[in-house]
C-alpha cells in the first residue's frame, strides 16, 4: 500500500463553510503536516477521514478501506487525538483503562500504564482536574496504547508551552521509528512541523493550496526583500504574496532565480502560510 490515507475531491457544504475538492495523500511511513489558519477546514477534513461526517462528494480511503465502511480490525490500527479532553471528565486513568479495554480488542493496559508513569499522570484523579498538558499527554497515551499504525492528530499541541510541545513531538518521533507507522497531524503551530513533517499539506478556506514534500517546499519558496522599484519589476505571475513595509517589501515567490539581483531569504513554514493567506 503506497498511501495509508487517500482523500479525493472531498466536497462538503455547511451553512457558513465548505470544503471544496479537497485532495491529498498520506504516504505510508510518513508524517504529513496539515496546516491552515483557524477555520480553514482542518478539523472538518479530519472528521471526514475518520468517517464521522455525512457522506458526500468524493472518496476517502484509509488503510485501503472506504472511510465510511472501516472494518473493526482497521479501526484498531488508527489512533485519534482531538483537541482538548475527549473523555468523560469524571473518569480517572484506571477507569479509562477499563473503558478502553472494552472498546479496543488490541488495547494494551501495560503500555497505557507505562505511558502514565512516563508522563507522570496520576491514576486516581479525575480528568476534570487535569491541566491542558496533562490532558494532551493522556489523549496521546490512549491513542498509542493499542496496535496503532496510523495516528491522526487534530491540534495536539495547541495551547501547550514550548517544553511540553517538544516532549510531545519527541513521542511522535519515537512512534515513527517503526517505518510502518504514519502520522497525519493538523496544526496551526507550523514551527512544530519543521522538526517532524515529511510532507506539508496547506488548506485555506476549504481549499487545498498545495501538498508538497517539506524540504522541496522550503527549497522552492523564497522571500525576496525588495524596494518599491524592484517590486514593480517583478512579474505579477511570480508573486504568491506581498508584505509591504516601511523600508522594504517582502515577496514570496517560487521563481526567485529570475531575480538574482534581489536578496532572497529562505522562509519558514509559517511565513509561507501567511503569504499564501494574505490577500
Amino acid at each position: 500500500m503506497e498511501n495509508c490515507i487517500e482523500v479525493k475531491n472531498i466536497t462538503r457544504t455547511y451553512p457558513q463553510f465548505s470544503l471544496k475538492n479537497v485532495s491529498f495523500n498520506v504516504p505510508c511511513g510518513s508524517v504529513v503536516g496539515f496546516i491552515g489558519e483557524n477555520g480553514a477546514g482542518k478539523s472538518t477534513t479530519i472528521k471526514a477521514i475518520l468517517g464521522l461526517l455525512k457522506r458526500g462528494e468524493g472518496s476517502i480511503t484509509v488503510l485501503g478501506e472506504n472511510a465510511h465502511e472501516l472494518s473493526p480490525a482497521t479501526k484498531e490500527k488508527i489512533g485519534v487525538v482531538f483537541d482538548g479532553l475527549s473523555f468523560p471528565e469524571n473518569l480517572t486513568v484506571r477507569q479509562l483503562d477499563k473503558v478502553m479495554r472494552g472498546i479496543y480488542k488490541t488495547w494494551r493496559s501495560e503500555r497505557f500504564f507505562g505511558y502514565m508513569t512516563k508522563f507522570e499522570l496520576p491514576l486516581d484523579k479525575r480528568f476534570k482536574s487535569f491541566s491542558r498538558g496533562m490532558v494532551m499527554r493522556l489523549s496521546i497515551a490512549a491513542a498509542l496504547s493499542h496496535d496503532t499504525q496510523l495516528l491522526i492528530l487534530d491540534e495536539p499541541t495547541s495551547g501547550l508551552d514550548p517544553v511540553m510541545r517538544a516532549e510531545i513531538l519527541d513521542i511522535f518521533l519515537e512512534f515513527m521509528q517503526d517505518e510502518s507507522h504514519s502520522i497525519l497531524i493538523s496544526t496551526h503551530i507550523t514551527s512544530d512541523l519543521e522538526h517532524i513533517a515529511d510532507y506539508i499539506c496547506f488548506i485555506h478556506k476549504g481549499e487545498i493550496m498545495f501538498t508538497e514534500e517539506r524540504n522541496e517546499m522550503m527549497e522552492r519558496h523564497r522571500i525576496l526583500k525588495c524596494t518599491d522599484e524592484q517590486l514593480m519589476r517583478i512579474d505579477k505571475a511570480d508573486i504568491i504574496g506581498v508584505r509591504k513595509g516601511r523600508f522594504q517589501n517582502e515577496v514570496l515567490t517560487t521563481n526567485a532565480h529570475k531575480y538574482p539581483d534581489i536578496p532572497a531569504d529562505a522562509p519558514t513554514i509559517e511565513e509561507i502560510m501567511v503569504f499564501y493567506v494574505k490577500e
Binding site: K47, L50, G51, L52, P72, K75, E76, I78, V80, F82, G84, L85, S86, F87, P88, E89, I103, Y104, K105
Partner: peptide
C-alpha cells in the same frame, strides 16, 4: 459524551 467528543472517539475506534 457528544459535547466532550467521546462519541467521536468511540465511533472512530473499535465501535
Amino acid at each position: 459524551n457528544i459535547k466532550c467528543r467521546f462519541t467521536d472517539i468511540t465511533l472512530a475506534g473499535g465501535i
